[in-house]
Design a binder for these strands. Structure first.
Lengths: 355, 355
DNA sequence: CCTTTCAATTTAACCGCTTAACGGCTGCTG
DNA sequence: CAGCAGCCGTTAAGCGGTTAAATTGAAAGG
């Protein structure tokens, strides 16, 4: 019901003063050619006088059934999206597509920050892009319930009736593992962040690894296991931290190395953590790559500056393609899957094992 | 009018099947405690059966008159917001505020990309944050017409009835100028990007400088002029490029130095351009700061890595405060002005003039 | 047995706009 | 001068909800 039924100008108040129908006023704003010049001028003048800024967007949207807005769902805090260079690059690509299609972008955080009112259910959008959320995320389920065109990025891998775009993480990671194996590494460790949205910290071996809700990390780990299995190694210690930060990377490296001083290589599953691990290794007096090989994943801009060996994926393209998939889905195309190429970018943080 | 009057589930279709009123169904979703357990269960079951995902956001918004969404207006392309580290830091801060208040963020590009339908007029939001737009931007005018709580960031400086947050650019810039003057510099040049949204490239001396629609650049230039005037210097050549990129910075430096080889210091009005200028200077065989002093503005993260002397402003805080201003405005507070502190961060790209 | 009280529902009045369909006029055409 | 377009504007049926206030019972109190 109305908060206040008087005062606010609207199509109706303008129409009333002028003695014309609301349809005419609406037309004056939306299809100026369907209205005589005289009437149009009077409408605009009266609107101006009343301080009426034009048709209410919400009402218009309700009536038209279209928003020209795309929703982007993040699992983490929204601010994380701007802290992670990989996410920023993705956003840059996505906004490029949006822009050319005249779409606005609504940033939605899945973070159940206290209140029940789900931001997802309230999002006034025509479709969604879902960025790397855990397989069982409740917000994703809610989005799928809304039956709007949806593009899933990175994870989950399998979502009925949605478009998908992402790299083949398992293959990329295996390629990295093969490079390390070829260099002679056999005792490799992994550091990673927040699999499955749980706030776990510590060792994460065995079963947990393979059922981690976050399929991105699961696949990256599996890829390494694949490469190791090929040379008969089944041992792959994993150290997990809740957040993807340099500090977490440093901390994870210390813990992992204390637990397993025999490791000759440590693979961070995200570049940021690798950067932290690099600092931590130097802190321990280890030189990289002579004493320890360290690798990352994603190939964010800073990786090149740090000389980090990492798995490269086309981050911006991923965003751009996500937008394009949405656009073509909206235009009636069937859901598609776009697998992006990855390659191992060898730089200076990798080398043969010590010994 | 309806695109299709049948088929789509709604409160009404669920209510009809159950033989209850739409109000009851609405309550089942919005205020579960106001409805008996039995009815609630039946409503939810029937909704599920029909594939009804809950009240339509647009309709809800129209009826409630509230969106819980904040609009963020950018003048440039949206993708630029993710290319400029200063904007990214701002966004990080803003989303932090948004998150804690349960707000979603709608990114809006002012870029009049072909179509007439202004994104601003269609934005379903409760308020706006306007990021560094030219004084005479038509979208800003349109936003003000909507009479929603609005926060202006950086520019324009004076906007009736809106909150404002930004640094004191003129003072910050003067402080920088004073540092250079104290070092002994008298022949200083400026390189800058796209003042007033115009796509101008070339020298930009005199009148144009002072009336540039973009008050940020205007003030930064004035601050330098202030510092130079104090030692009797009135000469301040300015070279302008359309975009804020490293390439533009490099190009502007070359042109400026070809025109005025006597300059001993060049101030870029934005860090990114300074970084480009740095590369260009080295390309010319100049060593910095021995042969030429180069400075930036904003102190983005990369500035520290490059050793760039620059004016530092709290970018993230600016975003956070913008969010807070919006929140308190919405809560009924009067519009406020928050001026942020700046300081000259001296690093290794500045030194005494050659000679 | 008659009130009260209170919880569970319904009623009904919005919210503000879009758009297909329709109709009165005016001016042209044959 | 009837017939026919077009132009302008109106009518009216949505779009899909929210919510204050009224209604209805049934349990509780006197």
């Amino acid at each position: 019901m109305a908060r206040r039924s008087s005062g606010r100008p609207s199509l109706a108040t303008v129409a009333a003063v002028l003695g014309v129908s609301t349809a005419t006023v609406s037309n004056a704003f939306n299809r100026p050619d369907r209205v005589s010049a005289g009437v149009k001028a009077r409408v605009l003048a009266e609107a101006e006088r009343q301080g009426y800024a034009g048709p209410d967007p919400a009402a218009r949207q309700l009536s038209r059934g279209r928003t020209d807005t795309l929703g982007l769902l993040f699992t983490d805090e929204l601010s994380y999206a701007f802290r992670d260079p990989a996410a920023v690059a993705f956003l840059e690509g996505l906004t490029t597509s949006c822009q050319t299609a005249g779409l606005n972008l609504l940033l939605i955080s899945a973070q159940t920050s206290g209140k029940a009112t789900s931001a997802v259910g309230n999002a006034v959008v025509d479709g969604f892009v879902v960025y790397s959320v855990p397989d069982d995320d409740p917000h994703l389920k809610q989005i799928l319930d809304r039956q709007l065109p949806t593009v899933v990025v990175d994870a989950p891998q399998e979502v009925g009736n949605a478009d998908w775009v992402g790299p083949d993480d398992r293959a990329g990671s295996r390629a990295l593992g093969e490079v390390l194996v070829a260099l002679g590494h056999r005792r490799i460790g992994v550091i990673t962040a927040g699999m499955g949205g749980m706030r776990y910290s510590g060792a994460a071996e065995g079963h947990r690894t393979l059922t981690a809700a976050d399929s991105v990390h699961r696949n990256r780990i599996r890829g390494l296991q694949d490469a190791l299995a090929a040379v008969g190694v089944t041992d792959l210690p994993v150290e997990e931290r809740p957040g993807n930060t340099k500090a977490a990377g440093a901390d994870a490296l210390h813990t992992l190395l204390n637990r397993r001083p025999d490791l000759t290589a440590v693979c961070a599953l995200m570049d940021i953590m690798a950067l932290g691990a690099l600092a931590a290794a130097r802190e321990r007096g280890l030189s990289v790559p002579e004493d320890l090989t360290i690798t990352g994943y994603d190939d964010i801009p800073q990786a090149a500056a740090a000389g980090l060996t990492t798995v490269s994926q086309p981050l911006m393209d991923k965003g751009r393609i996500a937008g394009e998939l949405y656009l073509s889905h909206r235009a009636g195309a069937l859901p598609r899957r776009r697998v992006l190429p990855t390659y191992v970018q060898v730089r200076t943080t990798s080398g043969p094992p010590r010994d």
